[in-house]
Design a protein around this nucleic acid. Structure first.
Lengths: 231, 231
DNA sequence: GAAATTCCTGACAACTTCTTGATCATTTTC
DNA sequence: GAAAATGATCAAGAAGTTGTCAGGAATTTC
């Protein structure tokens, strides 16, 4: 399962740090934007709307704390400060200026990654007004609200039907193997009970397809698994 | 100007740490609650609703990471881990389990205070976005005023009925699981007493629905939980 | 401390969901 | 293109969940 792509902006004038980050953040998971100055960083936040900002304090043009303050005048994007300064008052100043986290160089890659995941969680909560909905044709699937609509009309799904659909939505467009689906919905002990899938896929098709016998959304990949088509 | 009073819960079995925090956090600004075990901590989160939780990893009963995971099953309260463990994998495990920040002991008081301020900012964003009043049809629910009106007429609710309704309002439109509801209303020790929900949902329906037998607002998601419909 | 309210609990009926086997259709393999 | 493997459909009984009611315990109120 591939993660969605998150845009991360690093504002740091040291090439070494930017290069380090470029190698630390898996490009399949993160799209890394780079800014050398505070000015450029602010512009990129406005134009590219990154999901997280990694901010160095020792910039050439504007002080990092001031950059954080200016970001906070109009943006709620999570800011993680990366700095060599380990004095308390630097940390306090940055955090009070609006930064959400503060990592002292040198830091470990896995810790940075974990803290980025925390920041992404916060970001999606704050902007979470927009539901993580899947839409294809007249079908709307909102996993968070646990709500499915077809042509604007709510469709009732049983717990297993919903879990199965959720597993497909999380991998929308890709084939999900029988084993994977069975494990996610019924647990690893049922990984061979492929018959369950036929019954439940049938029920989902009846509820969600225009012509259940000729499925266009929930398609079979014979011998492999099923797929939720994205269009 | 007096600062608002923020309730902070510390979960730590070491008396020394609790005493240290008691002296570090200005009592005019913070009301400090203390729990010695994970069990007690979970109960206090449910009953006292602290604004921030300070969590030690090395507890006597449950592992701190597991405590964080259990909190996240039903609560969004910000969690700052305070731990002597400085291994990367401890940090990553705690942050991925749902913690929002991780401080390694010994930490400085001013840094802790600054990180608590960050956590409070996050907390007020997450909960502050919630509407103080919910309106659907002829039903008006004002959580702050603790007032419920149906067709302009005030409806009297018992304490438990109101807490249950409040938990649903806070997640209006979304399904709220049995566990989540039970934990919020009765506390984590009652997370399996699904029968309570049937009785109290029945009472709420009698007071709030036009046709209690055919609920339109307070609907059942069989096997999952209940939902307060928004339209 | 008596009255009123609220809470907990058990019994049972009604309802929903899950599992399962039989049968037929489709796809893949040789 | 026939045989074998895989997939779809249907229906019915089993299992699990939910709604309802009511009496007694506990708590709160006056």
């Amino acid at each position: 399962m591939t993660e969605p792509l998150h845009r991360v902006l690093v504002i740091d004038d040291e090439l070494a740090i930017r290069r380090f980050l470029r190698h630390s953040l898996n490009p399949e998971q993160f799209e890394l934007l780079e800014a050398e100055t505070g000015e450029e960083g602010l512009r990129l936040i406005a134009t590219k709307e990154p999901a997280v900002v990694l901010l160095d304090l020792g910039l050439a043009d504007i002080d990092g704390v001031e950059v954080a303050r200016q970001i906070r005048e109009w943006s709620q994007v999570p800011i993680i400060v990366l700095s060599a300064r380990e004095q308390d008052h630097d940390k306090v100043a940055a955090l009070d200026a609006g930064a959400d986290d503060y990592l002292t160089k040198p830091f470990s890659v896995v810790e940075l990654q974990a803290r980025i995941r925390v920041a992404l969680r916060h970001g999606s909560l704050a902007t979470g007004a927009l539901p993580p909905a899947f839409i294809a044709g007249d079908l709307e699937i909102d996993l968070l609200a646990r709500l499915v609509r077809k042509g604007g009309v709510e469709v009732h799904l049983t717990p297993n039907e919903f879990k199965l659909l959720a597993a497909l939505v999380k991998n929308a467009g890709r084939v999900v193997t029988h084993k994977q689906l069975l494990t996610e919905v019924w647990g690893p002990d049922f990984a061979e009970e492929a018959h369950y899938l036929r019954v439940y896929m049938g029920q989902l098709r009846h509820k969600l397809e225009d012509e259940p016998a000729q499925p266009r959304l929930l398609t079979t990949e014979s011998g492999v698994g099923y797929r939720l088509r994205t269009e």
